[in-house]
């Protein structure tokens, strides 16, 4: 079986006022389907840059990035948009639901961009999966933080992506709600969804089956851990 993700010798160099900064400096790793991986690192470690490249929002300066078997590191803008739509489900720290649209309409958005039919039915199924079928008609400002994040996860899942990429998914939630979201991630993990969680929260990281630690643009640790269910 092929890797879900395989990156080889990934570098990203920014030019900042005449100085060049190596945000990523030869990063190599791969993630298998069904893994639940935490990418950890302090600010400035390059984890945001790595997340942007894995999320196909950015391109590496050099190196290869294979997503679901295809080398996407040199894809054009439109092809990357298609990859984001089909292969990646984003979950953001601040939910990023579109205002003035119901939960259901928010979950429909990726399907509208992929152009496949039956948006309402698929979106409803995704909401059911995160336990929010009864809130389908509510707008984001009528939902609690935890509910909003669930809608966002439903939106990320609706196109059956190769990976679900979560950026500090519990960062804006209180401890209890954060745990509920992590519980949902564990359920998805049990359903063999590939999860990549970018975080600096050690409690979150400890719940993942594997931790990749970054510092100064390099991987300093990559370990399998015995996941602790809270």
């Amino acid at each position: 079986m092929s890797h879900a993700i395989e990156v080889r010798n990934l570098t990203k160099i920014y030019a900042m006022g005449g100085e060049t900064v190596h945000a990523l400096d030869g990063v190599t790793f791969s993630i298998e389907p069904g893994e639940m991986v935490a990418i950890i690192g302090s600010s400035g470690s390059g984890k945001s840059t790595l997340m942007n490249i894995i999320g196909c929002l950015d391109r590496p300066t050099s190196g290869e990035y294979h997503l679901d078997g295809q080398d996407v590191s040199r894809f054009s803008g439109n092809a990357l948009a298609r990859v984001r739509n089909r292969n990646i489900g984003f979950v953001f720290q601040n939910f990023n639901l579109l205002p003035r649209m119901s939960a259901l309409e928010n979950v429909e958005v990726p399907i509208l961009y992929s152009g496949t039919g039956g948006a309402a039915k698929l979106a409803r199924a995704a909401l059911e999966r995160v336990g929010l079928a009864d809130r389908a008609g509510h707008e984001p400002n009528q939902l609690s933080g935890g509910q909003r994040q669930r809608v966002a996860i439903a939106r990320a899942l609706v196109n059956n992506p190769t990976i679900l990429l979560a950026d500090e998914p519990t960062g804006n939630l209180d401890t209890r709600t954060g745990r509920e979201i992590m519980k949902l991630f564990h359920e998805l993990h049990a359903e063999k969804v590939t999860l990549i969680i970018v975080t600096h929260d050690t409690e979150v990281a400890e719940q993942c089956s594997r931790n990749i630690v970054l510092r100064d643009g390099k991987i300093i640790e990559d370990k399998q851990i015995q996941a602790q269910m809270p």
Partner: peptide, 8 residues
């Protein structure tokens, strides 16, 4: 957000 969700 729309771009992240696949809008061209």
């Amino acid at each position: 957000v729309r771009k992240a969700l696949g809008a061209r």
